[in-house]
């Protein structure tokens, strides 16, 4: 489980590399806020998918 969540660390890195320094700092750094929201959603969805898989496994066992 932890391996999957550790991948989240890469998210800000890739976002920064692709988008570029200037882009992140433009428009009053609003893209940093979007990035933060994106990370949160990614984490919540990762949690959701894991839970989904867990329930799927239970259904198969039944």
């Amino acid at each position: 489980m932890n391996n999957k969540f550790l991948l989240l660390w890469l998210l800000p890195l890739t976002a920064g590399a692709q988008a570029g320094e200037d882009f992140m700092r433009s428009s009053g750094k609003i893209h940093v806020v979007y990035g933060v929201i994106l990370i949160i959603f990614a984490g919540l969805f990762a949690y959701l998918i894991r839970l989904d898989l867990k329930i799927k496994k239970l259904e198969n066992k039944q």
Partner: peptide, 26 residues
């Protein structure tokens, strides 16, 4: 605890991104 760990890791990741563009380092 599992959910708290998720929130903590998200807190670290979001804080890291925020720090990069305000304090200048991940």
């Amino acid at each position: 605890v599992r959910t708290a760990i998720l929130f903590g890791l998200l807190g670290l990741a979001t804080g890291s991104l925020w720090a990069r563009f305000t304090w200048g380092s991940w």
